[in-house]
Design a protein around this nucleic acid. Structure first.
Ligand SMILES: NC(=O)c1ccc[n+]([C@@H]2O[C@H](COP(=O)([O-])OP(=O)(O)OC[C@H]3O[C@@H](n4cnc5c(N)ncnc54)[C@H](O)[C@@H]3O)[C@@H](O)[C@H]2O)c1
Ligand SMILES: NC(=O)c1ccc[n+]([C@@H]2O[C@H](COP(=O)([O-])OP(=O)(O)OC[C@H]3O[C@@H](n4cnc5c(N)ncnc54)[C@H](O)[C@@H]3O)[C@@H](O)[C@H]2O)c1
Lengths: 268, 268
DNA sequence: CCATCTTTGTGCACGCGTTCACAAAGACAT
DNA sequence: ATGTCTTTGTGAACGCGTGCACAAAGATGG
């Protein structure tokens, strides 16, 4: 999962568990598909299968929203769509700014999934003067000098960062200072933000590495078929000092500026 | 988090906890940055700050890998980079195919983060004949007819799906049948795969909806400053019947209509 | 109005993950 | 060699999330 919250020690208020919140969009998607087919009601078993979760889990999730089901029948699709949408805050309009209109930013700008659920691309922002004014996905790119103005004028509270990692923290700082309180970060960096600001990250590289880990496990188990406790994934004691430090040349993180731009260690 | 595993009831073998595995790439990134600065050792406190986690958690995570620290000093950066890389399977080459070279797929193809850690884009695959042979990010796009051949010839075990949601499941099926055992899915669909295949998803829309939920909460708390238990996020009792349910057609058991074509209900 | 059958809502137990707190290990100075 | 000081490694407690299993609710049919 390219997920990951920051801050907020999971001490959510007297509300819905974080894990449940993360599944609500999944239910909503499945329900929307049913709605489009004009299916009137759905059982927890059916809906759970469509969302890829356990039916008991789904029922418990819905119980946090209140009891919107009818025993012996199931859940009213339309009503549930409405309830979940309202709970997630999708009944209102959420203007979003995307900062960093490169390869990824441009793809995001044109993504239909944005507009589908109350999210509206309010502005595209880039630091490159050559891009200013140029339309991307029908929306003219604005220069980052105007970032603060754009955010305050449109009342934007959600920002998407798709800039190089080196400048992500400073872009984040400017967004937060301008009033943004929710950030979706695509740059491979740990962002630090003040309390009250939510950060979620999407990190392709991390996802791949997790897959690689499991992939390696599979390959290991394969060779050592049925084995006891360990004996796998531990080729050798590896002596004590090995680390040849092969990589270390041109990383992707390509730090560049003289300033503290890289994630690295906090100056404490 | 755009995360989300599928299957595998978290009953990992006598190995590293899933939560720890998900953090290893984070540590690795911070360590790599330190390595590039030629920092020889780092304490759990410093590294934890750089990775944005609790130091006790970091130490426990490392304890699962074995004890690679020196009390009173900290951890050897180079050695730790090597150990984590090895544990994640990054010391070997992982050929990856990307299926669906549209806006997103093209951005992914040109992403430097791929090559940085042992991942190599082995092939770009698209169903559009007009794209066949056309180079994207320096790699010629191949037609999806050759999908099976490409995967078996290059020994690809990791596939990235960036096709429209409607065809994601069938693309997934073909990938799995051809030998892919790890899938990173960008399409907004729940993929069903046989045991032994890992699926991770990256879902922009879900991330935004989660942010919107918290954003709405913040707005609610703001207005009702210091309040008791509830009284927030509940604008109105909303009567009882609101949902404009269409119904009236099929009987109670709407079930699945003609055929399952959308992510909707599982055909059981 | 009663019997039966379906499906919800949830009590409960269990396991994973997180965090605190501290003993032990080792570096370093004297 | 001994003492001091830093930092690791982990035992233990706690809370969250998950899934089983079942009683209760309500629809449906007679
Ligand atoms: N391309 C991908 O598939 C992909 C995948 C995962 C993560 N990422 C990450 O997303 C980020 C963007 O990737 P990309 O491939 O689009 O890179 P890119 O170089 O194509 O685009 C970066 C854009 O950010 C702009 N920019 C630079 N500094 C800025 C600033 N201070 N303010 C505003 N805009 C600024 C640049 O002008 C450029 O247009 C990177 O951090 C990358 O690691 C990319
Ligand atoms: N663009 C984004 O920022 C973004 C963000 C999140 C998720 N997504 C999801 O990623 C997917 C792709 O998005 P996109 O914007 O690149 O769409 P797109 O339409 O630009 O690209 C889709 C590509 O897939 C190809 N394709 C279609 N059927 C195929 C098949 N059976 N086999 C192989 N290739 C096939 C098409 O030819 C096209 O090139 C969608 O599911 C979208 O919802 C996109």
């Amino acid at each position: 999962m390219a997920t990951g919250r920051t801050h907020r020690p999971a001490t959510r208020s007297r509300g819905i568990p974080e894990a449940t919140v993360a599944r609500l969009p999944l239910y909503l998607r499945a329900l929307t598909a049913l709605s489009e087919r004009s299916v009137p009601t759905v059982s927890s078993e059916e809906l759970a299968a469509a969302a890829g979760v356990n039916s008991a889990k789904l029922r418990k999730d819905f119980s946090y929203l209140g009891s919107y089901g009818t025993r012996g029948v199931g859940y009213d699709v339309e009503y549930l769509v409405y309830q979940i949408s309202r709970e997630l805050g999708l009944t209102q309009d959420w203007p979003v700014v995307i900062v960093g209109i490169g390869n990824l930013g441009a793809a995001l700008a044109g993504y239909g999934g944005f507009a589908s659920r109350g999210f509206r691309v309010a502005a595209l922002i880039d630091a490159d003067p050559a891009m200013t004014g140029k339309p991307v996905a029908g929306i003219p790119v604005q220069h980052s000098d105007d970032l603060e103005k754009i955010i305050s004028e449109d009342g934007v509270s959600i920002g998407v960062i798709a800039t190089p990692a080196g400048v992500a923290q400073q872009v984040c700082d400017r967004l937060v200072a301008a009033g943004v309180t929710s950030i979706l970060n695509f740059a491979p960096t740990v962002l630090s933000v003040p309390d009250g600001v939510d950060v979620r990250k999407v990190d392709l590289s991390i996802e791949l590495q997790i897959l690689a880990f499991h992939e390696q496990r599979k390959a290991g188990e394969e060779s050592s078929a049925e084995e006891g406790p360990e004996a796998l994934a531990e080729p050798e004691p590896a002596a004590a000092v090995v680390a040849p430090a092969p990589r270390g040349t041109t990383g992707t993180t390509g730090r560049k500026g003289p300033d503290g731009d890289v994630p690295a260690v906090m100056p404490a």
